[in-house]
Nucleic acid binder design. Structure first.
Lengths: 114, 114
DNA sequence: AATAATATATTGTATAGCATAGTATTATTA
DNA sequence: TAATAATACTATGCTATACAATATATTATT
């Protein structure tokens, strides 16, 4: 019962954070797609649902933070929707990482003296 | 228009994080109340609304993370509802700080190689 | 032929931050 | 003394996001 409350809190903590994760990967890899991102996140210890990621990517695309195009693998396989950071996304990411670090600094400050 | 989207993202990023802030302060100060917490947060660069904090404190109390009692200042003044970390809250805080740090580590990892 | 893996999309639910407004007490100031 | 500001908490309605569950389609494997 208490574990349930904690799990709900955890999913709240992920809000906003996942955008940062997507953009951080895209800055490194230049380009990726949903299914691959899910695997990359899993390896990094971030387990998110498909139903979370795909709408998230769609929202970020609509925000103009990502560019997107469909690609069919040359060696056959299911078509993939690839995403890249747009110019706006690149600028935005810097601000977002900044805000994230500001959060960390604030928390540290609160833990010190208060 | 784009700044608006960013502001909305910022308020999402605060979800779950504010619990951490409240509990971090209460671990240091032992006890505090809403209005004081607002001021402490402000000094630490965390500007949140009353309509965010008071319901938050209420939820945390209902979760059993906080204990609470009313106090009337001896030198006069408006009655204040004080909050303290409960024993459950103390345990929970450790887990929550852990989860928060795990997020940071994951993000760092994603930024490195991907 | 059946199943698993790959890949994306959609729908409904619950929750939290926010804006706003309301209530009440004390302190200040004109 | 009347009006205003500061202190302090509560309640309501809105919006956006993470999640669970489901659906769909293609390729690979058994």
């Amino acid at each position: 019962m208490n574990a349930e409350v904690y799990q709900k809190w955890l999913s709240q903590l992920r809000k906003g954070f996942l955008e940062l994760c997507v953009m951080a990967v895209l800055r490194q890899k230049h380009s990726s797609y949903g299914f691959e991102l899910l695997q990359i996140f899993n390896k990094a210890g971030i387990t998110i649902n498909e139903g979370t990621l795909y709408p998230l990517l769609n929202r970020m695309f609509k925000n103009g933070w990502l560019d997107s195009n469909w690609e069919v693998p040359v060696d056959g396989g299911h078509p993939r929707r690839f995403y890249r950071l747009s110019n706006l996304g690149k600028k935005q990411l810097i601000e977002m990482l900044d805000a994230h670090q500001q959060h960390n600094l604030s928390l540290e400050q609160l833990q010190e003296c208060a």
